[in-house]
Amino acid sequence: MSLVRIDDLSIDYRRAGKTIRAVNELTFSVEEGSIVGLVGESGSGKSTLALSLMGLLPRNGSVTGGSILFEGREMQGLSEDDWRTVRGHDMGMVFQGAMNSLNPVKRVRDQVAETVRTHEPELGKDGSIDRSHELLNLVGIPSDRHEAYPHEWSGGMRQRGGIALALSGRPNFLIADEPVTALDVIVQARILRLLEDLQEALGLTILFITHDLGVVARLCDRVVVMYAAQAVEEGTVEEIFQSPKHPYTKALLGSVPNFAKGRGKSHGISGSPPSLINPPQGCRFHPRCPDAMDICTREDPYQTTFSSSQRAMCHLYDRQEADDAE
């Protein structure tokens, strides 16, 4: 069953009288109990999507079309009061530097307890402190460090603390936006393992937003690849890594160094991601695409389905689908 269904979603920002479409006609769903990776470079719209899922779009941003269903419930048009119960309670969010917003002169344990109390006031002071210890233990903070101040924690512990905060309202859906990007690889690997363990232990559903394909391969069940505000390909992690269809997915995979492939085997993509103020006509990837054809410069690509789980938006497969249909 899908926990989250995003259907034909568009999000615009208004800036200096101009409209910038940050998410364009995006459709995908997140099955209950799965870890879905949302991959994209800067400006792909992946973080805007995360904010809209939490009802946290900045004032100049708004959903201009489509819908977001969470547990079957439409999230568009929720009042701020409704959002307050959804946020933290139904869904939690972990991001880079999640603990930077903590009060530096208060013990972490007490601050986690405060957050717990906003979700479960009936626990009272002692109950919320017990729950705070429970959460910090759950994310692997040794109990002798619970009463430290935020600055006394290392980077890895702070990220664990961020996860504890996100879990304080017992959500079943966790949005993780680049949560391991600033960490060194050893700490990163251990945080990824923690997320996997939590997913299993608590039955969490996780949307993992990242630019790092290595992290996706390590952690995720499914992958959605975004480019210039659109989803260009979607599939299981095996499909995306073993038989990618969209030229952007292929090029992105080709630009990641891979020890097994040997040195100097990675190739970048010429040019850079387009401006969303004035995106390219037709397929947005065509100016950088090695396989671009005439039609790509004129017409929007439409979706080709390759399996029950894999689809891509690319003119290369127009013919194939027509053939298959015959």
Binding site: I186, A189, G214, V215, A217, R218, E238, F241, L253, A260
Partner: peptide, 14 residues
């Protein structure tokens, strides 16, 4: 610890 872009090589933890 470096994550490899290959889902079949998941999961040796340092």
């Amino acid at each position: 610890a470096i994550p490899v872009p290959d889902p079949s090589q998941r999961g040796i933890d340092p």
